[in-house]
């Protein structure tokens, strides 16, 4: 392409026009990814672990600690496959979590606070960024998804409770209300009634571990870390599956008025979409 003078972009000399095309394309892709990941990850998270994330009294020492990292490591793992193997970008987990938190904070304010009139202190989402940073650093340092699963995914879950403890601590303080001992978090949620989510619905701590005090959160964290390793491995491969460029011949081609001369040359098609497999083509991973 004739582009006049060249420019330096990403450490390379580019013709001016190619650089412009590349920049515009990158910006559009970044915007699409942000919106798509924010929407899809938020939908996944709100419908699998959302209740624990939405309410201050649901943030208990057992279920919340167990479930949240297991459900939250999914999209970071899938995106790490794409970002790392295709672009060598070690930012996927942090990117995914920031997208999620963006959607959550917008909604907690405009939905839960401004529309349903809950105080923000009742509906604060959990913090996930520190665990995501460690997950990204694990992949950057090891460059291997198996080691990242064993170290990064493990740390992602183990760090979840300490990450959230500092802002959650005030809501764990005991308070006496009408002769009953409850936590501040519980009391806020008793005061702002959820008609369709009665208190008996909440999954509370069960079993005998709570008898021995606060270490049920640590036990739950380790169990969550173990399952998070498995989830990371599964979702790395789901990312691999969804990032594959697979095509199949268009059966409507002739109906659309296209002829065989409209076909891109077969060799060019293979070079673009990968190896042709009985009419289908699959790009190299």
């Amino acid at each position: 392409m004739q582009g006049g003078t060249s420019v330096r972009l990403y450490g390379l000399e580019w013709p001016k026009e190619s650089a412009r095309i590349s920049r515009v394309f990158d910006l559009l892709v970044a915007a699409i990814l942000f919106l798509a990941v924010s929407g899809a990850f938020h939908l996944h998270y709100m419908l699998t672990a959302g209740d624990w994330d939405m309410w201050i009294d649901w943030k208990d020492r057992q279920w919340w600690v167990t479930l949240t990292p297991i459900m939250a490591i999914t999209f970071p793992a899938a995106l790490q496959y794409v970002f790392w193997t295709k672009f060598r970008l070690p930012i996927a987990a942090t990117f995914a979590v920031v997208c999620l938190l963006f959607g959550q904070w917008i909604n907690r304010y405009f939905g839960f606070h401004l529309w349903s009139y809950f105080p923000m202190s009742e509906v604060i989402p959990a913090l996930l960024i520190p665990g995501a940073l460690v997950l990204d650093v694990a992949l950057l340092l090891t460059g291997n998804f198996l080691f990242t699963a064993m170290s990064g995914a493990f740390a992602f879950a183990l760090l979840f409770y300490p990450t959230n403890w500092f802002w959650l601590a005030p809501y764990r303080l005991p308070v006496e209300v009408m002769g009953q001992l409850v936590s501040v978090g519980d009391y806020i949620s008793y005061a702002f009634t959820r008609t369709a989510l009665p208190e008996y619905i909440r999954l509370i701590e069960r079993g005998t571990l709570r008898t021995f005090g606060g270490h049920s959160a640590i036990i739950a964290s380790f169990f969550s870390a173990f399952v998070s390793i498995l989830m990371y491995l599964a979702w790395w491969h789901i990312g691999m599956l969804l990032a594959r460029v697979v095509t199949t011949p268009n059966a409507l081609k002739h109906f659309m008025g296209l002829t065989d001369k409209d076909e891109p040359a077969e060799a060019a098609q293979k070079a673009i979409d990968g190896t042709s497999l009985q009419g289908r083509s699959v790009a190299a991973e």
């Binding site: 095509t247 011949p249 979409d273």
Partner: peptide, 9 residues
């Protein structure tokens, strides 16, 4: 390329 081959993604 999208006319002759349907993209599964």
């Amino acid at each position: 390329k999208f006319a002759t081959q349907i993209s599964i993604p």
